[in-house]
Every structure is written in structure tokens, then in C-alpha cells.
Design a protein around this nucleic acid. Structure first.
Lengths: 149, 149
DNA sequence: CTACTGTCGTTGACATGTCATCGAATGACT
DNA sequence: AGTCATTCGATGACATGTCAACGACAGTAG
């Protein structure tokens, strides 16, 4: 095989996949904004924060978990704080650090948003994939995403 | 099935797939920037322009083909024009319109970039997917991307 | 304790995308 | 021809992300 070019099959599969890569997040993001006034980034922050029992994460830990840069999360957290979705607390363990805390308002917004979001993910993605396909997709995704950067 | 929630399988597959949705374009985009100084958006414009024999498209046609907004393409084209990759010509068929034209420099940059990009797509994606998986991925991608918006 | 090295979150400059709006040109209808 | 709704690309305001700095603090070695 000449690895410098793509076969017709590869080319078409890659094109189709790239289309999905753009279209799917865009559609789900629009649903989220329409139904709940949240961006996909907002939702990811809120839902990840809600995973901790006390709804608190160190900024850098949360950034690492979401695979965001600290800068990105710092900017985004400032905007979410201005909207009252989260607040910031000093980290008692490390005076450099900062704890992000999901407010009651933020939690309420998340709880309102979650069912709509699930419907969106279902209707735009899961409903159109068989169980076998979903298992394969998961295997492929994990395999590729786990490759070194 | 309770459609208001995700099963454990669905949840994990959706998580894994979302990771791929973010990581794969990011990696290929970084390769492109490093190897050729182009963004993924730049590359898409250049390669789509190069598909036409005369290397010219009306702005709105090109935008439709790439599924971009005219505003986005107008902004991006202005930046690419400033770098000498494309130029703009009046449309002889429609005085409102504007033809985007791939310059010789732009074409040269594309030709330099293409082989590296192919290697990148191969090493970060195609090499890790079997022919069967690729066929299924293409089918799924087309099925989902073709859904109404 | 002191010095050095590294990590923390923040910040500002910049690149890129969205959205609403604009003037100019088009096309359809009378 | 004249009117009017529509479409063209451009533009400015804004949201969001990257990157390279920064001061503050932590941790380690002497």
C-alpha cells in the first residue's frame, strides 16, 4: 500500500467521518443552547463538577479531568461565575490553588438541562446506532483516543 | 427503555466517542500547523478550491459545499488573502458575488501540505481501524450526518 | 533558614467563530 | 419601467479558545 495517499474507500470514509465530527457536536450544542441556555462547555463543567460529592474540584484537577488547559478553564470559570453557576473558593490545602464549586443555582440549571440533553443525544445519535455498532464505536474511540498525543 | 436516561453502556460509549470527537481533530490540526503552518480550516478551503479545474468558486457556493456560513468564509477568506493563499475576483455573472481563487502560492502550499496531512490522518486514525470497522464507521457517519438539522 | 526550581491560577494579546445588520445587486411580479 | 422581497458578501460586536507571560506559593536541597 502506498501510504502517501488515501484509497477511494479511505477517502470517502474519512470525508464522511469528518462531516460527523463537525455536524454532531454542532447539533447537540444548538439543542443545549436552545433548551437550557448552556454551551457544551458549560454543560461539561457543570456535569463534571456535580460528580464530586461536595461539588468542588481544584481548578487544575478539573481541567485535567476534562482535558482542558488551565487557562481555558480559568477564563471559562470566570464567565460561569459571573452568571452565578459556580463560585470560587481558596484551596485550604494550597494557597496557590482555587476550588471551583457548583452553586445551588448551577446545580438547578444542570438538573433542568440534563433530561433535555439526554433526549438530544438520543435523537441525534444513539437512536440511529445499533448495540453492535455502538460497542464497536466505543472500542474504536477508546483505541484511537488513547494513542499518545 | 426509559429514554430519559442513558444506560451504562450508552453512557460509556458516548463518553468515549466524545473524547474522540475532541482529540482527533485537535491532533490532526496540530500536525497540520506544525508541518505546514496551516489550520484545519485553511486546509479545507485550499483543498476544496483545488477541486475546481479553474481553482475558482463563488463564495457562497464554496461556503455551502463546506457547510460554513458565508460570514465565516468571508472572514476566513480575508485572512487567507492577506497571506497570499487566495485572492478575490468580481463575479462576472453576479455583481454582488465574489470569486475566491486559489493562487499559485496557495496551490504550492497545499501540495506541500497534502502528503504530510495524509501521513497524519493515517497514523492517527486510519492505521488503527480495520477495513470492516472503517466501512461501518462510514455507514454510521453518513446515516447520522444526513439526518435533518 | 535560604535559594532554587516548579506549579498554581490569572492575565492580555491575539485568532477564530457566531450573530445581527448593512448597502448593493438581483429577480419576480405587475 | 417600477416596486419590492430576497440574496450577495462585508462588517462590527461579541463569545470563546490558544499561547506566552506573570506573580504568588510550594517543595526540595544545601
Amino acid at each position: 500500500m502506498d501510504t502517501a495517499w488515501l484509497s477511494a474507500d479511505e477517502e470517502q470514509a474519512w470525508r464522511a467521518f469528518r462531516r460527523l465530527l463537525v455536524a454532531l457536536p454542532a447539533r447537540i450544542g444548538r439543542d443545549l443552547a436552545r433548551d437550557s441556555g448552556l454551551s457544551a462547555a458549560d454543560y461539561e463543567v457543570l456535569s463534571t463538577l456535580s460528580e464530586k460529592p461536595d461539588r468542588r474540584w481544584e481548578l487544575r484537577e478539573l481541567a485535567a479531568k476534562m482535558e482542558w488547559s488551565r487557562s481555558r478553564l480559568s477564563h471559562h470559570a470566570a464567565r460561569m461565575q459571573a452568571r452565578g453557576l459556580i463560585d470560587k473558593e481558596p484551596d485550604p490545602q494550597d494557597a496557590r490553588g482555587c476550588l471551583l464549586h457548583l452553586t445551588d443555582d448551577g446545580f438547578a440549571v444542570l438538573e433542568q438541562a440534563a433530561p433535555h440533553h439526554v433526549v438530544s443525544v438520543r435523537s441525534r445519535f444513539l437512536a440511529h446506532v445499533s448495540a453492535d455498532e455502538l460497542a464497536m464505536l466505543r472500542a474504536i474511540s477508546t483505541r484511537i483516543a488513547d494513542l499518545p498525543d
